[in-house]
Design a protein around this nucleic acid. Structure first.
Lengths: 228, 228
DNA sequence: AAATCTTACTTAACGCCGTTAATTTATGCA
DNA sequence: TGCATAAATTAACGGCGTTAAGTAAGATTT
């Protein structure tokens, strides 16, 4: 290491060529991601098909494996933008209100609205089935750790929004708006509630239109319940 | 109609034979249901496979189609017992408490416990994806009405537990325990909350063990929030 | 009791899926 | 121009839900 000779012209053109080649690769990767996003937005995560994505961009199905490890990895990559805009939505909502109760109300409404407006995305982000069924098989094979890491990935994404929620609760507890309690547990309770409403609205069990009527009763009950 | 001649012996043996044959059919049908239940309990609804069910009972895959319309119908039949025991669980919980707040607390705990104790069953009962993606295709084909009815079926099952929940809320509002509000909307808000907690616990996003710690904060916040 | 009809079930096939391995085609480099 | 390497393809495997055609056993009729 540490051989810092002045780069020859050949070396430079070689580097530029490599850069262009990598540019092409990045381009195709993003094209795949775009097509995958459209695919799963149209058909939903559970009917998402690699072969359809490939057909949509005019490549052979196996080409996708040169850019993503497998179907699940492609889906997770697809959803990363979703997590970013989700975090932004939540942050904007919280910043738009001053006192803690108003922040919670805004956060809840923003959360639910995001879910109702992006059904497939929300499903992919927050309604993935637990992989416990697969655990025995995974542990049997040698690929368990990698898969487990992939499964745990969404947890990290959630952190941003959850921190805002916990912070709002802490503030409300400190300034006397809310009664005492573990802010983390309360945050998860609130999260569960709004998530539950979105989940039902995205299932056949509750019409989305009806769900919108439930938003206010739910949020007012929760926030009222936090008060001292 | 109305030909009530005395049945000949031939007619009687014929009837008995038919009865025995139908007994066999019922038996095999239940054998399929049993095997299907074991299958989807073991692998989860999303990895449920007709062919594995067939293999488990030693019949050809297509035999199942002689007893159930398709995979979805078999799964729904599998879950009917689940709905019965669910309703019973909820009813027992509500009957075990006297005043409205205690009833709600008991109902919530029973609901969550049921979900945490029967993950695949709960998933099949309450976490089926909405079929809106398929709507265009279904409407295109001629089988839409039947499929839509099948998809709506869980709604009817829910009714029992929901009526108990609404009744408890009405009672609490009437006797002054709770503040005024539309009992149906409030019921759906409560439902969404407990459903959300179970859903998260059955997803990779929240460990079931952690979810148990959230039960009390969630329920106390909700019930406190209902009070005047 | 033999022939016919019906029922229960199977085999074969279709079109889809995710994924892997081997192979071809294109591209950069000497 | 040849060679190495990268990129993409074709072929194949095993699995899936589902349908249509075929078969073997059972019941019914004569």
């Amino acid at each position: 290491m540490m051989d810092s000779k002045p780069p020859t012209q050949a070396a430079r053109t070689r580097a530029a060529s490599l850069e262009r080649r990598e540019g092409r690769k990045r381009e195709l990767r993003e094209q795949i991601l775009r097509a995958a996003g459209e695919e799963f937005t149209a058909h939903g995560p559970e009917n998402f098909s690699l072969r359809r994505v490939a057909e949509r961009i005019g490549y052979s199905p196996t080409t996708i494996y040169l850019y993503f490890q497998n179907k699940e990895a492609l889906l997770l990559s697809t959803v990363e933008d979703g997590f970013r805009s989700f975090d932004q939505t939540i942050e904007d909502a919280v910043n738009g209100a001053s006192d803690a109760p108003a922040q919670l109300e805004a956060l809840g409404r923003a959360y639910i609205a995001f879910g109702l407006e992006n059904p497939p995305l929300y499903r992919l982000m927050f309604m993935q089935p637990n992989t416990d069924y697969l655990m025995p098989r995974l542990l049997g094979s040698g690929t368990a750790p990698a898969d487990l890491e992939a499964a745990a990935q969404p947890l990290h994404h959630r952190v941003v929004a959850q921190e805002l929620l916990v912070a709002a609760l802490q503030k409300g507890i400190k300034d006397g708006s809310f009664r005492k309690g573990d802010p983390v547990l309360l945050a998860d309770a609130l999260w569960a509630s709004v998530h539950g409403l979105v989940s039902l609205a995205l299932s056949p069990l509750m019409a989305p239109q009806h769900a919108e009527n439930v938003v206010s009763p739910l949020l007012s009950t929760l926030i009222n319940g936090l008060k001292a």
